[in-house]
Design a protein around this nucleic acid. Structure first.
Length: 510
DNA sequence: GTCCCTTTGAAGTGC
DNA sequence: GCACTTCAAAGGGAC
């Protein structure tokens, strides 16, 4: 566990550090400071106006900094709201469940995840999924189905390679072998008899504490959340829904018809019905598209999108995603760890279910405009290799983390050395960027960084390569330390998009 | 109707 | 080994 945290972008600080600043931790222990909430309203609402006028305006740096400073109080306030909200969701869920049991065809929200999300998390002892967290009973499925069978393919049967439910193309190809998850059975163990309760689907989803209220402010959101919003993805689509039902009978959200944009959504809402109402489709069956498993951020986005929409009264996904991106960076290490862990489990399950699937299978599925490569002459700091060579770093162990991949090495730009760990092989160690410096995620232009980068370099203690140890038990995303790298911001969309667009160096700091 | 935008993370591709 | 690309979700907006 310890090693796991040392691998997380916000988990890699030794004692005392602080990526997850102290204020961020308070939220977990205090749930009743209403007065603070009221006092903060004025501030946060003021921030809302600013943010709405310029969602991505980098000038918000100062505002964000202020917001971060108030994280503790805001989180406490949100914890209280969250509790009420969770109760509401639970009630809604039960109502919905009641309707479903009446025989109505479920046409709820789009797929929202995998069943493991509902199960106890052995890694997060203190997490919302822990025994101490809220529990929402899962009503037994009728019609003789296993309580989980109807939810997702996580019944034992579906894990059976010889399962008759597995489509032909899903069967393992000769010679293709993917390591079996060693602990999936533990993750998704079913209650004796297949009936009863499982640990809450809504545990952590419904109890996130918000480090920064959406839009940099805090507002009551319960009233604005649309019923059946994606926030209830787990309770609805996972616990109750047929969405994701594969034509073969395997209900899996990752399987969608190859129908272009929003095919997933389309499938979730209508596929099940169409499969039973439109025989024409059966004549020309198209191989279903198996989607990529969602990564941690995607899981987070899916859960939080509805809230942000409700709170910010925004609808454009691009704007929402920007807010979510900020909030993601503002999450505490524990909060992010939940999503990373869930994503890891999701990948494991995906691997189990579709051993022969590869992300490559979906390459070219989306028609994407060929991005024009735009040289970034002003910012190009050179490759990590050049950077290491310049500063005489060990080519194997010393890394200029910020300049990995698309990231520009601001330290190189500033003439500083670089020696941050590589996490791509799972052996990352603490980034030279201290947790405190790395959070929250703030964008700055290279000019802005001129001073901060220098001071940063001066303040950084010698990098301890001895700490470079392989993780055990948990695989940590290679990009987990992304915030320790220098995040990039894209130039205005006019200069095209995607990774090939011009990137400006930014740095994270408090 | 299709693609873009926008985010982060995972994984694939190409050199 | 490394940089880059693509895809995953979402839905309004542009064309």
């Amino acid at each position: 566990m310890q090693q796991f945290y040392t691998k997380m972008p916000q988990l890699n600080s030794g004692g005392g550090d602080d990526l997850g600043a102290n204020d961020e931790m308070i939220a977990f222990k205090d749930e009743g400071e209403q007065e603070e909430k009221i006092q903060e309203n004025a501030l946060t609402e003021r921030d809302l106006a600013d943010l709405k006028s310029s969602l991505v305006n980098e000038s918000e740096i100062s505002q964000n900094a202020g917001a971060v400073a108030d994280h503790g109080a805001i989180r406490r306030a949100h914890a209280e709201e969250e509790r009420a909200y969770t109760d509401k969701l639970a009630r809604d869920h039960l109502e919905d469940l009641s309707k479903r049991q009446d025989g109505g065809m479920y046409k709820g929200p789009a797929y929202s995840g995998y069943p493991f999300l509902m199960l106890p998390d052995p890694y997060l002892q203190n997490g919302p999924m822990s025994p101490s967290s809220n529990k929402v009973s899962v009503v037994q499925q009728s019609h003789g189905m296993h309580p989980l069978t109807s939810l997702l393919p996580y019944s034992n049967d579906h894990f059976n390679p010889n399962s008759p439910h597995l489509p032909a193309d899903m069967s393992q190809k000769p010679g293709v072998h993917r390591p079996q998850s060693q602990d999936l059975s533990g993750f998704y163990s079913l209650p004796p008899g297949g009936v009863g309760q499982i640990t809450p689907p809504m545990g952590w989803q419904s109890q996130p504490v918000y480090p920064i209220a959406p839009c940099g402010f805090r507002q009551p959101y319960s009233s604005g959340l649309p019923a059946g919003s994606s926030f209830s993805r787990f309770p609805h689509s996972l616990m109750l829904g047929p969405p994701g039902m594969h034509s073969t009978g395997i209900p899996h959200p990752a399987i969608v018809p190859p129908s272009g944009k929003h095919e997933h959504d389309q499938y979730d809402r209508n596929m099940y019905v169409k499969q039973h109402q439109e025989p024409k489709r059966e004549k020309e069956p198209k191989k279903p598209v198996i989607k990529k498993p969602l990564n941690a951020f995607m899981l987070y986005m899916k859960e939080m999108r509805a809230k942000v929409i409700a709170e910010c009264t925004l609808k454009e996904s691009a704007a929402i995603n920007q807010i979510l991106g900020r909030r993601w960076h503002a999450l505490t290490r524990e909060e992010q760890a939940k999503y990373y862990e869930l994503a890891r489990k999701e990948r494991q399950l995906h691997m189990q279910l579709y051993p022969s699937w590869s992300a490559r299978d979906n390459y070219g599925k989306k028609k994407r405009r060929k991005r024009e490569k735009q040289p970034d002459s002003n910012l190009d700091p050179g490759s990590p290799k050049k950077c290491r060579a310049r500063f005489g770093l060990n080519q194997q162990t010393d890394w200029c983390d910020p300049c990995r991949r698309k990231k520009k090495c601001i330290r190189y730009l500033q003439g500083g050395g670089c020696a941050s760990p590589d996490s791509s092989d799972g052996s990352a160690i603490d980034s030279p960027l201290s947790p405190t410096d790395a959070r929250p995620h703030l964008h700055q232009t290279p000019e802005d960084l001129a001073g901060s980068a220098d001071s940063f370099l001066r303040e950084q203690p010698p990098f301890d390569l001895s700490a470079n140890t392989k993780p055990t038990g948990l695989s940590v995303p290679s990009s987990l330390d992304s915030r320790h790298r220098l995040p990039t911001t894209r130039q205005p969309s006019s200069s095209s998009s995607s990774s090939s667009s011009v990137y400006s160096a930014t740095i994270t700091q408090t």
